[in-house]
Design a protein around this nucleic acid. Sequence first.
RNA 1: GAGCGUGUAGCUCAGCUGGUAGAGCACUUGACUUUUAAUCAGGGGGCCCAGGGUUCGAAUCCCUGCACGCUCACCA
Length: 490
Amino acid sequence: MVEITNEQRDIRIEKEKELERMGINPYPHIYRPTHTSSLLNEENKDLPNDTEKEELVKVAGRIRAIRNSGMFMDIYDKDGKIQIFSSLQHLPEEELKVLSLLDIGDIIGIEGTIKRTKRGELSVVSQKITVLAKSLQVLPEKYHGLTDVEMKYRQRYVDMIVNKETIESLINRSKIMTSVRQTFLDKGLLEVETPILHPIKGGATAKPFVTHHNALDADLFLRVAPELYLKRLIVGGMEGVFEMGRVFRNEGIDTRHNPEFTILEVYWKYKDYYDMMDLFEEVVRNACLATHGTLKIEFDGHEIDFEKPFERRSMDSLVKEHTGVDFLAIKTDKDAVEAAHRLGVKVEGDQNWGQALVSVFEEKCEGYLIQPTHVMNHPISNSPLTKTNREDDRLVERFETYINGWEMCNAYTELTNPIDQRARLEDQVRQAKEGNEEADGILDEDFVTALEYGLPPTGGLGIGIDRLVMILTGNLSIRDVIAFPTLRQK
RNA sequence: GAGCGUGUAGCUCAGCUGGUAGAGCACUUGACUUUUAAUCAGGGGGCCCAGGGUUCGAAUCCCUGCACGCUCACCA
């Protein structure tokens, strides 16, 4: 960022130089505070008004407010505010000089005694001021804060300093990731890593990013899903594995999509999709407790209840409930497309029964699924990696859990039959040749070979971590839960 | 990718049917001193997103571009 003129920055640089002329390094190597704001408050919660203690403490933080010509300063550390009281009559000349060179935004350390003022504000009475980082940039206004969304995302550090909700969301993101990880580790599942650079795109229907390896002179795809590698680990003998990591999809950007996002995938031997429903519910409950301490939360004006078991509904039953149309009674692709058209749902004429069902579901049902709901039994046509439903061979054993109308996860009883798998992937290749950009154009032979060695019955679950964080932090935009969301270069 | 909207001081925003800029916070000088959006008085600070055009004259009207937001499309 190139500043042409900035008077206030020039003044701050001059103050920085003045500190150096006084023999003070405004960017020292180390400072060790003895107290955080919360510890200070905890230890002195019973200190009466207008009393001072003799104990010397050291605190540190960023100056956010200066009042009464420096007599009062508010500094903030990770836990909150500490008021600094500087008695202008009692501080030595040198300290007064340093005080006069401070600005809002500077990070300072204060050594002094503890006092509660007449008005009841716990304060540190400064005896020694140490500049820890002279700030050369002016912070946004204290009252309105930073509202320019572009600057919020481009200079997230400023947003974090000024807007408490921003740093809190990012802290909660970290807590949620820890909770999710711990839920799996507690069950004995192994955290693993698989390639991000894929020679063949696979594992999800999505447009990939393509990159190039010079020494190999080969194009590689940034992964759209880790699925096919994780299943190989199950073939190899691991009992259960999970990976939490970044995947990349070359698609549009909006409030619910970022080109790179965090997915968690877990595969567990001798489990099916019913087990994955229980597993997902446990993951969500633990993460909710880790961030809220309760299982009922408010989101976008709705109370969302994670306490009771999530509703389990088949896709066709939801469609029937909201439209009156029973897709299971429809036998041909043509009739299915016509049924969709009668409901006002746009479906291409050449689409099949399953695509029509999914389209109607997405348009007519999704929005109603505010409370956690497992939507089960998708049509087979767009689930190439899923085992056929044991009760209806037009369907598969798959579910997606919806919260607030958003798809939060995607889980299967994994397809393990290598012959069936080959046929389904060959169908994808056929679709790709017909122009479907998201279908996999090259069959991952090695993956099918792995299945030929024998994949035991396995349950798999993929969770959109960013969306889980959104729900649990009350954020309506995915950009607010990703520290550095993708933006155009300026 | 399409439609709509926004872009003015470090930040938050005014700026009418065109006459080359204002406020609050912040900064600065001074006053004051137990304040907590401290207060009071003075002062400084603008490539008005960029480039074209219309006009005697453009922050303002028109065109093009850039960035961001919202809605839609694709998707998780």
